[in-house]
């Protein structure tokens, strides 16, 4: 479905107003996602996870330098194809809740998403209602403005927008941040459901523990590089089936596991990645 081949991304960094450096944000990053798969991309903050999402969607700022290739359904995914497919076959569930229009009621926003995907307005309205019902947002939430929704509800509205667009590839950027366990489960289950319908889901998160139950494969990312891609079942016990020391450290640092750095210092981890 989607193949990312040796993608490198550099962004300008102004150390002073006359001096421009380039910060490498993605470094020869490769990834494949198949239909029906939830592929979790897990990494520390600043690893370049969100930039990866923007690169796939073609939403990077203009001065970005991008190298490497993206393929969507075996064809190169270039800027014009991204523009054409965005909102139709490619959907992004953004990290920031400020992606919702503050002046528009929930249902209208979801209907707009359906219209952007090419549905007639009457049908779009109906589809938006169905999608919102599907994500258990009641009549009051459907008529609410963004600021009246709780964090969990707003996430579900964003998921509903991806749902009505009939997208084949859904990228969810940190969809479970700041939600209580019940709400988080709902949002993550909704993503699993999308994959079970044959869509591809890229789940971008730092929350390894809660990504595991719904993910098929997990790619660990660090400083813009891919550290390891492993099946979700490799993350168990002492993490012995993980091949990379950083993935193991990430797994063992979880509070339900050792909650310890596994005798590995930050320095050693860096050496391992290099």
């Amino acid at each position: 479905m989607l193949t990312i081949d040796q993608l490198s991304l550099q962004l300008p960094l102004y150390t002073s107003w006359w001096k421009r450096d380039w910060a490498t944000c993605l470094d020869k990053f490769s990834l494949t996602v198949s239909p029906g798969e939830v592929h979790a991309v897990v990494g520390a903050s600043g690893a370049g996870k969100s930039l990866l999402a923007y690169a796939i969607m073609g939403l990077l700022p203009a001065p970005a330098r991008l190298n490497g290739q993206l393929y969507y359904q075996e064809k190169p995914l270039n800027a014009s194809r991204q523009r054409q497919l965005r909102g139709q076959e490619l959907a992004l569930i953004p990290q920031s809740l400020s992606a919702l229009d503050p002046l528009v009621r929930t249902q209208r926003q979801v209907a707009w998403a359906a219209q952007r995907a090419g549905q007639a307005s009457a049908h779009a309205w109906h589809a938006s209602q169905q999608a919102l019902d599907h994500y258990q947002l009641d009549a009051r939430a459907q008529q609410a403005y963004a600021h009246e929704l709780s964090g969990g509800m707003a996430r579900r509205v964003l998921t509903a927008m991806a749902h009505v667009s009939q997208a084949k590839l859904v990228i969810a950027d940190e969809p479970s941040v700041g939600l209580d366990p019940h709400q988080r489960q709902r949002v993550l289950n909704a993503l699993r459901e999308l994959a079970d319908q044959g869509k591809s889901v890229i789940l971008i998160t730092h929350d390894l523990r809660h990504a595991l139950p719904i993910a098929d494969r997990v790619t660990i990312m660090r400083d813009g590089k891919r550290v390891e891609t492993a099946p979700a079942c490799a993350f168990q016990g002492s993490g012995a089936s993980l091949t990379n020391a950083y993935s193991q450290a990430l797994w063992l640092a979880l509070p339900d596991n050792a909650f310890a750095t596994a005798g590995m210092s930050r320095r050693e981890q860096e050496v391992n990645v290099a």
Binding site: V42, G43, A44, S45, A47, E174, V177, G178, H206, L208, R209, A249, L250, W251, A253, L254, F259, A260, T261, R266, Q269
Partner: peptide, 14 residues
Amino acid sequence: DEISTMLDPITQLE
């Protein structure tokens, strides 16, 4: 108040 929710496990631990 939920200061480590947005952190990866290693950063959270540190």
